[in-house]
C-alpha cells in the first residue's frame, strides 16, 4: 500500500526509459510539458478536442485526462519524437504537402492520432480516417486537407514497406 501521495514510476518517454517520482495528482500533460515536451497542448481539458493527444502504448490518449502515473511500465510517444532522427515522419510530410494546417495548434494531436491509426490500420478508408479524427477539433482547415493528408501518408507508408 502506498503511504504517500507520490508514486515511483518507470516508463519509456519517446524511446528513453525514465524513472520518475510522480505526484499522484499530476496529469500526464503537465509532466510532459514540464519535461520540455510542449507539442501536446492544454486546451479543452475534458477529452473532447484532441489538442493534447499523445500515444500511450501505441493508442492515442488525452494527456489532459490521464494520470502521469499511468506511464509506469508503458510507452509514451509525443510529437517531438517523430523527427528525432532528423527527418519528418511521413504523416508530417503529408500535412505539409496538403497544407493540412494553418495556425498549427491542433496539429501535434492530429498527427499523433493519424500516426496511431496508420499503425493499427495501414490501409484505412476515408470513412475510417474521419472516424478516427472525430473528437480532434481544427478551427482553421475545415478538415478536408487533413483527411487527404492522412490518406496520402498511408499510401506513402505502404509503398515504403
Amino acid at each position: 500500500m502506498s503511504d504517500t501521495t507520490t508514486t515511483a514510476v518507470t516508463g519509456r518517454i519517446n524511446g528513453r526509459e525514465q524513472t520518475l517520482q510522480i505526484d499522484n495528482a499530476d496529469l500526464l500533460l503537465d509532466v510532459l510539458r514540464d519535461l520540455g515536451l510542449r507539442g501536446a497542448k492544454p486546451s479543452c481539458e475534458m477529452e473532447v478536442c484532441g489538442a493534447c493527444t499523445v500515444q500511450l502504448d501505441g493508442l492515442p490518449v488525452s494527456a489532459c485526462t490521464t494520470l502521469a502515473a499511468e506511464i509506469d511500465g508503458r510507452d509514451v510517444e509525443t510529437i517531438e519524437h517523430l523527427d528525432a532522427d532528423g527527418t519528418l515522419h511521413p504523416v508530417q510530410e503529408a500535412f505539409l504537402r496538403h497544407s493540412a494546417l494553418q495556425c498549427g495548434f491542433c496539429t501535434p494531436g492530429m498527427v499523433m492520432t493519424a500516426k496511431a491509426l496508420l499503425e493499427q490500420d495501414p490501409d484505412p478508408s476515408r470513412e475510417d480516417v474521419v472516424h478516427w479524427l472525430e473528437g480532434s477539433i481544427c478551427r482553421c482547415t475545415g478538415y478536408a486537407t487533413i483527411i487527404d493528408a492522412v490518406l496520402d501518408a498511408a499510401e506513402v507508408m505502404r509503398r515504403a514497406r
Binding site: 502506498s2 503511504d3 504517500t4 501521495t5 508514486t7 499522484n24 495528482a25 496529469l27 503537465d30 481539458e45
Partner: peptide, 22 residues
C-alpha cells in the same frame, strides 16, 4: 490549468487485493 487535489494511489495486482482495499 486544472489541478487535482492529492490522493493516495493504490494499484492492487489481484482482484483479492482490490477487494481488501475496497
Amino acid at each position: 490549468m486544472l489541478i487535482l487535489s492529492d490522493f493516495r494511489l493504490h494499484r492492487p495486482a489481484s482482484l483479492a487485493d482490490a477487494l481488501l482495499l475496497r
